[in-house]
Amino acid sequence: MKRFLLTIALAGSLMACKNTGENKNEAGESTVSEAMENNTANQPKVNYVPIDSDEALIAASLMAAPEESRDGCKVIGYNMAGEFVTFREGDNEFIVLADNPQQSGFNAACYHKSLEPFMARGRELRAEGKTGPEIFDIREEEAKSGKLDMGKPGATLHIYYGESDQYNPETNEVEGAHYRYVVYLPFATAESTGLPERPVGPNHPWIMNPGTHRAHIMISPLPEDKE
């Protein structure tokens, strides 16, 4: 009889422990779940909207320029009507080429004004229907002959690009956009710069088109973590 009562008491104790453990697990899981829900609820919701006006196009494209220089940049590019225009004149060293609203995604550029002859020549040749390789060969010949001004060595192109054409009207940031930088050093080589001709790892700088008029250093920063 004593053995029977002892067995019942032991079983009851084990059941109580099991229930206590389950209750703790349930309480812990509930706490974690509530914390995750609270964190999600506390995250501000970004109201991304389509770029559907020249004003929005300019504002988003200016993100390609250094923040302290945006107010003084000249801005050019295709407007919402598909016309290539000067949106506004500038008074500093930068020219912003706005995103083309007729193309998918987003791609705006900001470059040192000394690069304008090189950039303008490329736009002119594309308008004539020349292909990428043809444009390269023509500008290579013109740069070597001195006909084409390649700008100041080290002049930089800033690119702000992404797959989305949605932007935040409060910050002018484009959803998921990233930065890339191009430093032009006409006719530079791996030997003259000490840079490799291909990246040795993700986001490492390297020299592209070495030995040509279009030689440039490619710099692709790591995407900013928004979380």
Rank of each mutant, 00 (worst) to 15 (best):
I95A: 03
T7A: 13
P186L: 07
A98R: 03
T189V: 07
S30H: 07
F4A: 13
A143P: 06
V49N: 01
P169H: 01
L185W: 05
E191M: 01
E224Q: 14
Y111T: 11
A9I: 15
A120N: 10
G28Q: 09
R126H: 13
V85E: 02
Q103C: 11
E26D: 04
S192V: 14
I58C: 04
E175N: 13
D99C: 15
P221I: 14
E93W: 04
N168H: 06
G211I: 05
E141T: 14
R121L: 06
W206E: 00
E173L: 09
Y48S: 01
G72Y: 07
L6A: 15
L222G: 14
E170M: 03
P101V: 02
L185N: 03
R70L: 00
R121W: 14
L97I: 09
I58F: 00
N92A: 02
P199G: 00
M1H: 13
L62W: 04
A59K: 11
H178R: 14
I138F: 12
I76Q: 02
G12T: 07
G132K: 00
A65C: 11
Y179G: 09
I95P: 00
M218T: 13
E55A: 11
V49C: 05
T86W: 06
K130L: 15
A98W: 04
A190L: 05
H112W: 13
N107R: 13
L148Q: 12
L125E: 09
M119A: 08
A11W: 02
L195M: 12
E175Y: 08
D71K: 11
K130Q: 08
T189N: 01
R123Q: 08
G151P: 05
L62R: 05
I76N: 00
R198T: 10
L14Q: 04
D91F: 13
N38G: 01
E170C: 03
F87H: 04
F106Y: 13
T131P: 08
D165L: 05
A16G: 10
E141A: 15
L125M: 10
Y48E: 00
Q103E: 14
G201A: 09
N19Y: 03
A190Y: 01
L57V: 08
M218N: 06
G162N: 12
L125W: 07
T20E: 03
A120P: 00
V46I: 11
S114A: 09
L195S: 07
E170S: 03
L115T: 13
L14R: 00
D71C: 03
E224P: 13
Q166P: 07
R88K: 15
T171S: 06
W206K: 00
I8Q: 09
G122M: 14
G90W: 01
I51Q: 01
